[in-house]
Simulated scan of single mutants.
Amino acid sequence: MTDNLNPSLGPSIRASRVDAGLSLRELARRIDVAPSYMNDIEHDRRTPSEAVLIKIAEQLPLDFDDLLALAGRLGEDTELYLKSNPTVGVLLRTVSGANLNEENLQRLLKSANRMAKTQVGDEPKA
């Protein structure tokens, strides 16, 4: 069961859809899926693909990265990066094992963003 502080994917999508004044059928039409599939997503019976999550984020005021996280997905590019860089898996297991709180996760994210901007040893991106 979901609590109000950490809703799961389906209820988050449903709440946003209702707030936007869209029917389930209308959202399904806009993202080109069957209404029954959309209903399954909203009731956490199905986990949508990354492509469907992108379409949902385009139609509702929801952040794509948040949707990916709620779906338990990393995204195709991130999965490829993870497979080619085993240290990333170690980092994720370390963070998970430490059970870092939101404040520390935000600090880690800011640090990673700074590193991404000033990465040493790589060619400049075109």
Rank of each mutant, 00 (worst) to 15 (best):
H43S: 10
D65E: 05
R46M: 09
R107C: 00
Q119H: 07
A116G: 05
Y37N: 05
D122T: 12
R114Q: 09
N101R: 05
G75T: 07
V88E: 09
K117F: 01
K110G: 10
L67Q: 12
L109P: 04
D44F: 04
A57T: 07
K117A: 04
I56Q: 02
G89K: 09
S111E: 01
L82E: 08
N104K: 03
I13W: 05
L5I: 09
I54F: 03
P61E: 06
A34E: 13
P61H: 01
K117E: 01
D63I: 14
T94R: 04
A98C: 04
G89T: 14
R29S: 12
E50I: 12
R114W: 04
T118Q: 08
G121L: 08
R46K: 13
M1K: 10
V88A: 14
N4L: 14
S111P: 01
V90N: 09
V88S: 02
T47Q: 00
D66F: 08
E102H: 11
L62I: 11
E79A: 14
A34K: 13
L109A: 09
D66T: 15
V95R: 06
A20H: 13
S23T: 11
Y81S: 15
A20Y: 14
P11M: 03
L74G: 15
N4C: 00
T78I: 11
H43I: 00
L100M: 11
E76V: 05
L108G: 08
N101V: 05
A51I: 14
R30W: 01
G10K: 02
V18E: 15
L105D: 01
E42I: 08
